[in-house]
């Protein structure tokens, strides 16, 4: 049997879109881990709250698929920025209320606080929108599922690249550029990196380390909120438990790429997204009985393999300390 390049390209498209989404969430894990060495177990729920809030905001705009392109775009932007602000505020709030008080406590204490917040947010979500999956308010016109390749570029192909896929990647890339600009070019971003590298030395330079840490939570939260909005419409549903599954894959992506490393989180996210799509759709062509139910096993098998050969992750770095 010939290798089916068309299918491969199709699943690559899906994988990149899913991977972008995972990367956005993974960045939140890696930002927080990089600066305070805490695995923020509540991060998946921060993402989920973003999805819920996006549904509320889009619902409030009252825009429907027939409202015209300008309205639809504006409603989408409102949902995106609303979710980003909301998730950023939650993430920052959790740090302010709980983690900051536990800065000098044993490392297990903030970890358990994070698990606690994960449950609190899930229960708030159930109270807010119920325990069953919700459908987002439909405001996207059917054209969002137009095949870009055939309709826009006039190519004759069976590969399906929808406008929605393009939007997902088109939202992710500017966010990644904005993040790296902030972290590597601005004074506050540099202060955040300095705090991550040596907290005491940063304080001695006059950096308010609690503020620098707060900024990391704001950034991570905002990216998770954006991912929430994207997931809401990419999956066309949201549920209080969605943060667990996505959070687990995103955390895996962060570890795979080298936790604490921003580029690593993106590469890890894309890797997992692509493996996910390939395993879900492609492998059954070659292995009978294969199906989507095996995907998590494949992803974690890859994680284990990478960890065996590169314990610090794909881009994880070890710098020698000089005495």
């Amino acid at each position: 049997m010939d290798f089916n390049w068309q299918l491969f390209a199709q699943y690559l498209v899906i994988g990149i879109a899913t991977g972008s989404l995972i990367a956005l969430i993974a960045l939140g894990y890696t930002l927080v881990y990089g600066i305070i060495e805490l695995i923020n177990f509540a991060h998946g729920e921060v993402f989920m709250m973003g999805a819920f809030f996006a549904a509320t905001v889009v619902g409030l705009t009252g825009v429907t698929a027939t409202s015209g392109t300008a309205s639809v775009v504006l409603a989408g932007i409102a949902g995106l920025f609303g979710a980003m602000a909301f998730s950023a505020a939650i993430n920052f709030g959790i740090d302010r209320i709980a983690y900051r008080r536990l800065r000098s406590a044993p490392r297990l204490a903030p970890l358990i606080a994070a698990i606690g917040f994960s449950f609190i947010l899930q229960n708030i979500a159930i109270y807010w929108k119920g325990a069953n999956p919700i459908s987002p308010p439909s405001f996207l016109p059917p054209e969002i599922y137009t095949n870009v390749l055939t309709e826009w570029f006039g190519l004759s192909t069976t590969i399906f690249l929808t406008v929605l896929d393009v939007v997902v990647v088109g939202v992710t890339i500017p966010l990644l550029i904005g993040l790296s600009w902030f972290v590597y070019r601005t004074r506050l971003g540099k202060a955040m990196r300095a705090t991550a590298q040596d907290r005491e030395a940063a304080a001695l330079m006059g950096i308010d380390i609690n503020r620098a840490i707060g900024v990391a939570f704001l950034l991570g939260g905002a990216l998770a909120g954006a991912a929430g909005m994207i997931a809401l419409y990419y999956d066309n549903s949201a549920r209080f438990q969605m943060g667990f599954r996505y959070g687990l894959f995103a955390f895996t992506a962060a570890v795979l790429g080298g936790i604490g490393n921003l580029a690593g989180a993106v590469i890890g996210g894309l890797t997992i997204g692509i493996i996910w799509a390939m395993s879900d759709g492609f492998m059954k062509e070659y292995i009978s009985g294969w199906g989507a139910q095996w995907t998590p096993s494949v992803i974690f098998a890859v994680l284990v393999l990478v960890m065996v050969f590169r314990p610090s992750g794909l881009l994880g770095e070890r710098t020698a300390d000089k005495v």
Binding site: R187, K190, A191, Q197, A201, A202, L204, M205
Partner: peptide, 18 residues
């Protein structure tokens, strides 16, 4: 206690943070 993964110039910039 210099910031190991920042450049020399960035370290000096951090010194001028205040």
């Amino acid at each position: 206690r210099v910031f190991p993964r920042m450049t020399v110039l960035e370290n000096l910039e951090m010194g001028a943070f205040v």
